[in-house]
Protein backbone atom coordinates (compact mmCIF):
# COMPACT_ATOMS: atom_id res chain seq x y z
CA UNK A 1 0.00 0.00 0.00
CA UNK A 2 1.30 3.43 -1.01
CA UNK A 3 1.91 5.59 2.11
CA UNK A 4 0.08 8.90 2.44
CA UNK A 5 1.88 11.81 4.03
CA UNK A 6 1.07 15.11 2.32
CA UNK A 7 -0.53 15.94 -1.02
CA UNK A 8 -0.74 19.38 -2.58
CA UNK A 9 -2.59 19.20 -5.85
CA UNK A 10 -5.40 20.43 -8.06
CA UNK A 11 -8.78 19.57 -6.55
CA UNK A 12 -12.01 18.92 -8.45
CA UNK A 13 -15.48 19.60 -7.03
CA UNK A 14 -18.31 17.06 -7.38
CA UNK A 15 -21.49 18.77 -6.27
CA UNK A 16 -24.21 16.11 -6.30
CA UNK A 17 -24.87 14.23 -3.04
CA UNK A 18 -25.24 10.42 -2.84
CA UNK A 19 -22.81 9.51 -5.64
CA UNK A 20 -23.02 5.70 -5.49
CA UNK A 21 -20.27 3.23 -6.31
CA UNK A 22 -22.25 1.99 -9.34
CA UNK A 23 -21.71 5.44 -10.81
CA UNK A 24 -18.02 5.42 -9.84
CA UNK A 25 -17.61 2.09 -11.68
CA UNK A 26 -20.51 0.28 -13.37
CA UNK A 27 -21.03 -3.40 -12.44
CA UNK A 28 -20.23 -4.70 -15.93
CA UNK A 29 -16.55 -3.82 -15.44
CA UNK A 30 -16.14 -5.66 -12.13
CA UNK A 31 -15.19 -8.93 -13.85
CA UNK A 32 -11.96 -7.28 -15.02
CA UNK A 33 -8.77 -7.63 -13.02
CA UNK A 34 -7.77 -4.54 -11.05
CA UNK A 35 -5.00 -3.72 -13.55
CA UNK A 36 -7.56 -3.70 -16.36
CA UNK A 37 -9.69 -1.01 -14.72
CA UNK A 38 -7.62 2.05 -15.68
CA UNK A 39 -9.72 4.70 -17.41
CA UNK A 40 -13.04 3.36 -16.11
CA UNK A 41 -13.57 5.95 -13.34
CA UNK A 42 -17.10 7.42 -13.63
CA UNK A 43 -17.26 5.67 -17.01
CA UNK A 44 -20.91 6.18 -17.96
CA UNK A 45 -21.04 9.83 -16.91
CA UNK A 46 -17.56 10.65 -18.20
CA UNK A 47 -17.95 9.19 -21.72
CA UNK A 48 -20.74 9.13 -24.27
CA UNK A 49 -21.90 6.04 -26.16
CA UNK A 50 -19.11 6.47 -28.71
CA UNK A 51 -16.51 6.59 -25.96
CA UNK A 52 -15.91 10.33 -26.38
CA UNK A 53 -15.47 12.50 -23.33
CA UNK A 54 -18.50 14.47 -22.22
CA UNK A 55 -17.43 18.11 -21.95
CA UNK A 56 -19.78 18.79 -19.04
CA UNK A 57 -18.12 16.27 -16.72
CA UNK A 58 -15.76 17.99 -14.31
CA UNK A 59 -12.76 15.65 -14.73
CA UNK A 60 -12.89 16.20 -18.51
CA UNK A 61 -12.43 19.95 -18.13
CA UNK A 62 -8.91 21.29 -18.70
CA UNK A 63 -8.29 22.83 -15.26
CA UNK A 64 -9.36 19.66 -13.45
CA UNK A 65 -7.56 17.03 -15.53
CA UNK A 66 -4.60 16.99 -13.16
CA UNK A 67 -6.80 16.65 -10.05
CA UNK A 68 -5.46 14.39 -7.32
CA UNK A 69 -8.08 15.52 -4.81
CA UNK A 70 -11.87 15.28 -5.01
CA UNK A 71 -14.10 17.53 -2.93
CA UNK A 72 -17.50 15.86 -2.88
CA UNK A 73 -20.88 16.12 -1.13
CA UNK A 74 -22.81 13.99 1.42
CA UNK A 75 -22.67 10.19 1.28
CA UNK A 76 -20.17 9.87 -1.59
CA UNK A 77 -19.41 6.19 -2.27
CA UNK A 78 -22.74 4.91 -0.98
CA UNK A 79 -24.23 1.62 -2.16
CA UNK A 80 -22.34 -1.44 -3.34
CA UNK A 81 -19.26 -2.61 -1.40
CA UNK A 82 -17.20 -2.91 -4.61
CA UNK A 83 -13.63 -2.01 -3.73
CA UNK A 84 -13.07 -1.30 -7.42
CA UNK A 85 -14.59 2.12 -6.72
CA UNK A 86 -11.41 2.95 -4.79
CA UNK A 87 -9.18 1.20 -7.33
CA UNK A 88 -10.42 3.35 -10.23
CA UNK A 89 -9.95 6.52 -8.19
CA UNK A 90 -6.40 5.32 -7.49
CA UNK A 91 -5.82 4.55 -11.19
CA UNK A 92 -6.90 8.10 -11.99
CA UNK A 93 -4.35 9.50 -9.54
CA UNK A 94 -6.83 10.56 -6.85
CA UNK A 95 -5.10 10.38 -3.44
CA UNK A 96 -7.72 11.84 -1.14
CA UNK A 97 -11.46 12.49 -1.06
CA UNK A 98 -12.79 15.36 1.06
CA UNK A 99 -16.44 14.89 2.05
CA UNK A 100 -19.06 15.78 4.63
CA UNK A 101 -19.84 12.05 4.83
CA UNK A 102 -18.88 8.87 2.98
CA UNK A 103 -20.62 5.54 2.50
CA UNK A 104 -19.39 3.37 5.39
CA UNK A 105 -18.02 0.48 3.30
CA UNK A 106 -16.35 2.81 0.77
CA UNK A 107 -14.86 4.70 3.72
CA UNK A 108 -13.27 1.49 5.03
CA UNK A 109 -12.06 0.52 1.55
CA UNK A 110 -10.23 3.86 1.26
CA UNK A 111 -8.07 3.01 4.28
CA UNK A 112 -7.13 -0.45 3.04
CA UNK A 113 -5.92 1.05 -0.26
CA UNK A 114 -3.99 4.07 0.96
CA UNK A 115 -6.55 6.64 -0.19
CA UNK A 116 -7.09 9.21 2.56
CA UNK A 117 -10.75 9.92 3.41
CA UNK A 118 -11.14 13.39 4.96
CA UNK A 119 -14.38 14.21 6.76
CA UNK A 120 -15.10 17.90 7.40
CA UNK A 121 -18.30 19.77 8.37
CA UNK A 122 -20.79 20.23 5.54
CA UNK A 123 -20.42 24.02 5.38
CA UNK A 124 -16.61 23.77 5.19
CA UNK A 125 -16.84 21.21 2.35
CA UNK A 126 -19.41 23.36 0.52
CA UNK A 127 -17.05 26.33 0.94
CA UNK A 128 -14.16 24.36 -0.58
CA UNK A 129 -16.29 23.38 -3.58
CA UNK A 130 -17.34 27.02 -4.05
CA UNK A 131 -13.66 28.10 -4.11
CA UNK A 132 -12.84 25.41 -6.68
CA UNK A 133 -15.69 26.61 -8.90
CA UNK A 134 -14.57 30.24 -8.53
CA UNK A 135 -10.93 29.36 -9.25
CA UNK A 136 -10.85 26.29 -11.51
CA UNK A 137 -7.51 24.50 -11.22
CA UNK A 138 -6.83 25.81 -7.72
CA UNK A 139 -4.84 23.58 -5.39
CA UNK A 140 -5.65 22.20 -1.98
CA UNK A 141 -3.10 20.84 0.44
CA UNK A 142 -3.87 17.83 2.65
CA UNK A 143 -1.36 17.01 5.39
CA UNK A 144 -2.04 13.80 7.26
CA UNK A 145 0.65 14.28 9.92
CA UNK A 146 -0.87 17.56 11.13
CA UNK A 147 -4.42 16.47 10.13
CA UNK A 148 -5.07 19.67 8.21
CA UNK A 149 -6.57 20.74 4.92
CA UNK A 150 -5.38 24.05 3.49
CA UNK A 151 -7.94 25.63 1.18
CA UNK A 152 -7.10 27.68 -1.95
CA UNK A 153 -7.79 30.85 0.09
CA UNK A 154 -5.18 29.81 2.67
CA UNK A 155 -7.56 28.92 5.48
CA UNK A 156 -6.75 25.66 7.26
CA UNK A 157 -9.22 23.11 8.60
CA UNK A 158 -8.34 20.36 11.03
CA UNK A 159 -9.87 16.91 10.47
CA UNK A 160 -10.16 13.91 12.77
CA UNK A 161 -8.89 10.40 12.00
CA UNK A 162 -8.41 7.34 14.21
CA UNK A 163 -4.73 7.11 15.27
CA UNK A 164 -4.72 3.46 14.10
CA UNK A 165 -5.79 4.40 10.57
CA UNK A 166 -3.48 7.41 10.50
CA UNK A 167 -0.44 5.33 11.41
CA UNK A 168 -1.29 2.69 8.79
CA UNK A 169 -1.67 5.35 6.07
CA UNK A 170 1.51 7.19 7.02
CA UNK A 171 3.58 4.02 6.84
CA UNK A 172 1.66 2.13 4.14
CA UNK A 173 1.42 -0.79 6.53
CA UNK A 174 0.12 -4.24 5.53
CA UNK A 175 -2.88 -4.66 7.83
CA UNK A 176 -2.93 -8.46 7.54
CA UNK A 177 0.69 -8.65 8.69
CA UNK A 178 -0.21 -6.43 11.63
CA UNK A 179 -3.15 -8.64 12.62
CA UNK A 180 -1.13 -11.82 12.25
CA UNK A 181 1.07 -10.31 14.98
CA UNK A 182 -1.88 -10.86 17.32
CA UNK A 183 -1.82 -14.62 16.78
CA UNK A 184 -1.60 -15.36 20.52
CA UNK A 185 -4.66 -13.22 21.30
CA UNK A 186 -6.65 -14.71 18.41
CA UNK A 187 -5.87 -18.29 19.43
CA UNK A 188 -6.80 -17.55 23.05
CA UNK A 189 -10.04 -15.94 21.91
CA UNK A 190 -10.90 -18.94 19.74
CA UNK A 191 -10.53 -21.27 22.72
CA UNK A 192 -12.73 -19.06 24.95
CA UNK A 193 -15.28 -18.56 22.21
CA UNK A 194 -15.53 -22.28 21.46
CA UNK A 195 -16.38 -22.91 25.11
CA UNK A 196 -18.95 -20.09 25.19
CA UNK A 197 -20.67 -20.90 21.86
CA UNK A 198 -19.84 -24.58 21.28
CA UNK A 199 -22.75 -25.05 18.86
CA UNK A 200 -20.92 -23.05 16.19
CA UNK A 201 -18.40 -25.86 15.85
CA UNK A 202 -21.10 -28.48 15.17
CA UNK A 203 -21.69 -27.93 11.48
CA UNK A 204 -23.73 -29.67 8.84
Amino acid sequence: MQPFTKVTAVAAPIDLPNIDTDRIIPARFLRKPKEGMAGLLFHDVRFDDQGNERADFVLNQAPFRAAKILVVNDNFGCGSSREAAVWVLEHHGIRTVIASSLGDIFHGNCYTNGLLPVILPRDVVAGLRAQLHAHPGASISVDLESQTVTAPDGTTHRFEIDPFRKQALLTGQDEIALTLGYEKEITAFEARHARAMPWLAADA
Binding site: S81, R82, E83, A84, V86, I105, G108, N109, T112, N113, E175, I176, T179
Partner: peptide, 10 residues
Protein backbone atom coordinates in the same frame (compact mmCIF):
# COMPACT_ATOMS: atom_id res chain seq x y z
CA UNK B 1 -22.28 -6.30 7.73
CA UNK B 2 -20.77 -5.93 4.28
CA UNK B 3 -17.03 -5.53 3.73
CA UNK B 4 -14.66 -4.70 0.88
CA UNK B 5 -12.39 -7.05 -1.01
CA UNK B 6 -9.28 -6.25 1.10
CA UNK B 7 -11.30 -6.98 4.21
CA UNK B 8 -12.44 -10.30 2.70
CA UNK B 9 -8.77 -11.18 2.26
CA UNK B 10 -8.09 -10.05 5.83
Amino acid sequence: FGIGSSEVEH
